[in-house]
Design a protein around this nucleic acid. Structure first.
Lengths: 120, 120
DNA sequence: CAGCATCCTTTGGGATACTG
DNA sequence: CAGTATCCCAAAGGATGCTG
């Protein structure tokens, strides 16, 4: 078992030397987290459902990002001891504070779709 | 001269296959763009000023990110034919639509500074 | 079903030196 | 002052195969 180099871990030094923007970018950074948060919204969502909602994401990324969000307390994980297994994810109260941000990202992006000039 | 692989170029295929969120993440993605946009705000800012406002950023990154933002039309560049040279950057009208997003990122990040649990 | 492990490629970003 | 050019490393992400 090889230890995955833990990225996005804010240690005390980094935390207090950076401004809020830097913190936000580190926590929300990457290609997937905003989409995951957006799809969680206010509901509980099953792992398989989440995977279906986010086409192109690999299982590796989905699990990894969910774990990071869980580690920071933005996402809660509910595992049911059933066979076959069932796991649901949801935003914590803290995580829900991210919803306005990701919503405005999504809205902005959708508005761009019509306006942007296509290179090539 | 080695051609820098052009990142963040949305071609037609990528553009129309993705949702708004994916577009927003691609355009705003990375460690620096939100901070650059935030510091530009509603003013014109000189290159050297921008560099001072964003500690830790290298010239390479600052120039590269500004060029990308300019390519998409979110940033305008004003070069004055003087010696020593002077260059100012500002958000275009289109670019200013990003301000609410980056502002909410900054606000959220600042709010986190007090709340977050410090690992190690 | 909901993952984990491993290998690999691509991208982002830092350091340094140099220039019109 | 406002950049370029080059080299290099680290982090992000993809593909595939396997498991409780």
């Amino acid at each position: 078992m090889r230890k995955e180099t833990s990225t996005n871990t804010l240690n005390a030094k980094e935390l207090y030397e950076t401004c809020g923007m830097a913190i936000a970018v580190r926590i929300l950074g990457g290609r997937w987290k905003p989409g995951i948060i957006w799809h969680l919204g206010h509901n509980r969502v099953r792992y398989s459902q989440l995977k279906a909602l986010i086409p192109n994401i690999s299982e590796r990324m989905l699990v990894q990002q969910l774990k990071e969000l869980e580690k920071y307390g933005f996402v809660e994980r509910f595992a049911f001891p059933e066979v076959p297994p069932r796991v649901e994810y949801a935003l914590s109260e803290e995580g829900k504070t991210l919803l306005p941000i990701v919503q405005s990202l999504a809205d902005w992006g959708n508005a761009q779709r019509e306006k942007i000039k296509i290179p090539v």
